[in-house]
């Protein structure tokens, strides 16, 4: 058990030691280790996405009394791979009236931003790629950059539907970033740190979801909106905007957007687990298994919401953020602050 728990940490140390023994400087070894870590993350993310997409299709199928993909491989597990191959081999279509540079870079920007989120996530005890002191802040600020990619896609497509989708996405992001930060602040106040590993360690005795139920609910709603997932999937809104910001995209570029969305989904679910559900802490299993398990359970809830609820109207969405979520989170902050002050 002990070996499993520290397997990856030991492995990393072994690599560094090995490199140093081969005569490399300590800094060089660290850099090589960092590159290996990034490569691992990219690999894990890709595999993870393939599973995720399959899972979402299965779950939505089951909810809708269908079987979901079930032809390719056992229970259709290879369906996503087949789809990916199909998308990769599709003709690369760039409409002639688009702003070519912006149109081309948007999906790349989007996927890079979503991959950057993983840098600060502690996947296990001492297993963050970079254990930033300002981890939470970093996560939020990088996460909000995703909107720029959507705006680029919408603007570069030179299509009115895409532009509407992009506009919606920006409006939604600006309104929901604030309650998101406020609800996370309450957690940070209790933990007394912006470092994610510290926050996880602060939940040794009790999960923050029990200390901060209000913050959790507001955070969850705001996170759904941030992720552009149903019932807040305004920018895409296929029944209204055909495909919103993605209307003009096809083939691999479209697949990149899709990939990035699921990458984001996993990152945010992992953040939820870290902030409210004790992150990698858990009995019996090694710590680096607990975080994915928790994240997956949270993702199932995201799926469940999306496949049940109708889409909210844009103005209700804004009103809900400014008139309900922000006051509630502010009040929650004040109460948390007072309680913390008197407990001291």
């Amino acid at each position: 058990m002990k070996g499993a728990e520290t397997f990856f940490v030991d492995l990393a140390r072994a690599i560094v030691n090995g490199l140093e023994n081969m005569g490399m400087s300590a800094l060089g070894a660290e850099i090589i280790l960092l590159i290996i870590k990034f490569a691992c993350i990219a690999g894990i993310v890709t595999v993870n996405i393939i599973i995720l997409i399959w899972l979402e299709r299965k779950i939505s199928g089951f909810i809708q009394l269908r079987l979901g993909p079930n032809r390719l491989g056992p229970w259709g597990v290879f369906q996503t791979i087949a789809d990916a191959i199909k998308l990769l081999t599709k003709e690369d279509i760039i409409p002639s009236q688009t702003d070519k540079i912006i149109f081309r870079t948007a999906p790349i920007v989007f996927i890079i931003i979503s991959l950057m989120l993983y840098v600060v996530l502690p996947f296990g005890d001492g297993m963050a790629i970079v254990d930033l002191n300002l981890g939470v802040l970093y996560f939020i600020s990088v996460g909000s950059l995703g909107t720029i990619a959507l705006l680029m896609a919408g603007w570069g497509s030179n299509n009115k539907w895409s532009l509407l989708g992009a506009m919606r996405s920006v409006a939604q992001m600006i309104s929901y970033e604030i309650p998101l930060v406020f609800s996370l602040l309450a957690v940070v106040m209790i933990a007394g740190s912006l470092n994610m590993s510290d926050i996880v360690n602060a939940q040794d005795k009790i999960w923050f979801v029990f200390l901060q139920p209000v913050a959790f609910i507001t955070y969850f709603i705001a996170a759904t909106a941030e992720l552009n997932r149903g019932p807040f999937d305004m920018p895409e809104a296929e029944q209204e905007l055909t495909a919103g910001a993605y209307t003009e995209y096809s083939g691999m570029r479209w697949a990149l957007f899709f990939l990035a969305e699921y990458t984001n989904l996993f990152a945010v679910s992992a953040l939820t687990a870290i902030m409210f559900f004790g992150g990698f802490k858990g009995p019996f299993l090694p710590s680096w298994l607990w975080l994915p398990i928790k994240a997956y359970i949270i993702m199932l809830v995201f799926f469940w919401l999306k496949w049940t609820l109708p889409r909210i109207r844009m103005d209700h969405l804004m009103a809900f953020s400014w008139k309900v979520l922000i006051p509630v989170t502010l009040a929650n902050l004040v109460v948390t602050g007072c309680v913390l002050h008197f407990l001291k």
Binding site: I59, G61, F62, I63, Q64, L65, R66, L67, W304, L305, W307, T308
Partner: peptide, 14 residues
């Protein structure tokens, strides 16, 4: 949500 949860486990009709 309760309804969709119930159907998640039901026999599929397709």
């Amino acid at each position: 949500l309760g309804i969709t949860f119930k159907h998640l486990w039901e026999r599929k009709i397709t």
